[in-house]
Amino acid sequence: MERHFDEELNNLKKNILKMASLVDESIAKAIKSLLERKEDLAIEVENEDNAIDMVEIEVDMLCLDLLARRQPIAIDLRFITSVMKINSDLERIGDLAANIGHKVQILLKYPQLKPLIDIPRMAELVRAMLKDSITALVDKNTELARNITARDHEVDELYVQVFREVLTHMMDDNENIKNGIELILIAKHLERMADHVTNIAEDIVYMVEGKTIKHQFEP
C-alpha cells in the first residue's frame, strides 16, 4: 500500500541526495583549484559552503517534522534517524572542502613544492567512496556499504605517504615549511572526509539491516 508518508520520505531522500551532490562538487572543485592553481575557483569553493549549510538545515527540519508528525517506527524510524546522521557527516565533509579552498588560497602565494600525485588520488578515492555510499543508500545495498568501510584504509595509507614525503621536503629546506604544512593539512582533510564517508556507510548498514557495525562492532 502506497502511503502519503512515502512521498514525504522520498522528498527527504531527494534532499539528502542533493546535499551529497553539492558536497561532491565542492571536493572536486577544491582539488581542481589546487592542481590548476586557480585562486578564483578556491574562493568559490569557500563561499559555496553556505549553500550546503542551508540544505543541511532544510534536511534537519524535514527530519524533525516527520519525527513529530508521523512518529515513525521500524524501517521508517531507522531511515529518518540515519538520514539525520548522514546529513551531519555530509555537512562536515562540505566544511572540510571549503577549508581546502581556503588553504589553496594560502598555498598559491608560494611556488609549487612538488608535483601532486597522492593528494589527487586521495580525492578520487574519497569521491568514489562518497558516490558509492549514495548508491548504497538509494539501492539499500549493504554489501557496497561494507566495502566502503574497508576502503577507508587506502586513504589512511596515502595520507601517511604524503606526510612522510612532505616532511622530507621541509627537512631539506625550511623555506618549504609554510606551504608544506598547508599541504599536509589538505591531505589530513581528505583523510577526515573518508572517515565521514565511512560513518555514512555504517549508518546505511544500520538503516537497512538494523545492525551496528561501527567501532568494529559486528554482532
Binding site: M1, R3, P72, I73, A74, I75, D76, R78, E209, G210
Partner: peptide, 19 residues
C-alpha cells in the same frame, strides 16, 4: 519490535504498509 522487527511482514504491518 519497533526498531528492527525480524520479519518483513511485521515491519510492513507496524509501519502501515499493509493491505
Amino acid at each position: 519490535m519497533f526498531t528492527k522487527p525480524v520479519k518483513k511482514i511485521t515491519e510492513d504491518y507496524i509501519t502501515g504498509r499493509f493491505g
